[in-house]
């Protein structure tokens, strides 16, 4: 199955990325190349091979349930341009159509 320009536009929209028509065309080609490569991988016989749940060769990395100090409020809000009191101020969430 080939990706269409509409598929690429949809993915871009979900990721909040704006693409020009040229960029869309380029991504259609690149992404289809990648999919074709994955399709080739899918032809490999994996009978009897343990499924990989994860790419990291670790398991059960956990911490004990213990409270550690949080950031001071001023420091937590230091990186934002939209502070209001002790809150992060965020722009309008839903557009009224």
């Amino acid at each position: 199955m080939e990706l269409t320009p509409d598929d690429v536009k949809r993915v871009a929209e979900l990721a909040r990325i704006e693409l020009t028509e040229d960029e869309t065309r380029a991504f259609v080609k690149d992404l289809n190349d990648i999919l074709r490569y994955v399709n080739r991988l899918q032809q490999v016989d994996t009978e009897g091979v343990e499924p990989a749940y994860h790419v990291v060769p670790l398991e059960n990395v956990m911490r004990v349930d213990c409270v550690t100090p949080s950031l001071p409020v001023d420091e937590a809000l230091d990186g934002t341009t939209g502070r209001s009191g002790d809150y992060f101020k965020v722009p309008r969430i839903l557009d009224v159509d």
Binding site: G82, G85, Y87, F88, K89, V90, R92, I93, V96
Partner: peptide, 8 residues
């Protein structure tokens, strides 16, 4: 009708 919202 909210021009902005506050996040905690």
């Amino acid at each position: 009708d909210s021009e902005y919202s506050l996040a905690d």
